[in-house]
Amino acid sequence: MCRSQNNLLIPIDEDADELLMLRYREGDASAFTRLYARHKGPLYRYLLRQCGQPATAEELFQDVWLKLIAARTGYTVQARFMTWLYRIAHNRLIDYYRASNRGLPVSYAGDCPEWVDVPAPLEEQPEHQDDRRRQAERLLVLLAELPEAQREAVLLKEEAGLSLEEIAQVTGTGRETVKSRLRYALARLRRGLGGAL
């Protein structure tokens, strides 16, 4: 158990992310190694699928971890470690969007009209959709075609395993917004996979 700043007791087992981060804050480098090994894959994929370019994803990935390292001394258990980590990643991603020529995608707007305007991907029914690997590849293609905010919600759910509330916390939106984004995203993905699921 660990007491947060709000005097809330957060259950923490010996190998919990939060405890590892506290140990790293105290100077235990091996704790960071374990944390990194645990989260590097999901975080990298989240960034890669959000920006679409491996080189950019690598840069963002490094920035996120370096920010975490720099912020270690001020770390306190206020929420799950995952929420903190992906909050840093989300903010870095938003900075990246803003710095790019495209600017911040409109899908991040609370009342995003594209949710209804963006045409759904054409339903394709490839002859060999039964191949699971190919289905997964098709899923990634469909995922890449989603508006950024919807895609981010899916990734935070699938990669980081965050709840609706945690996704809302990370992305700085309301729970209902997250729920809507997920609902639209899943509907499009199902349609795109053509009922093969």
Partner: peptide, 30 residues
Amino acid sequence: SHDETLSILYQATHDIEPPAWLDERILTAA
């Protein structure tokens, strides 16, 4: 807001990892 079949299918794409040199750089910094 959740589709178990889609989640399982998405798990099949979890083979992408950051490159080793990036791991090394971050761990060294840490």
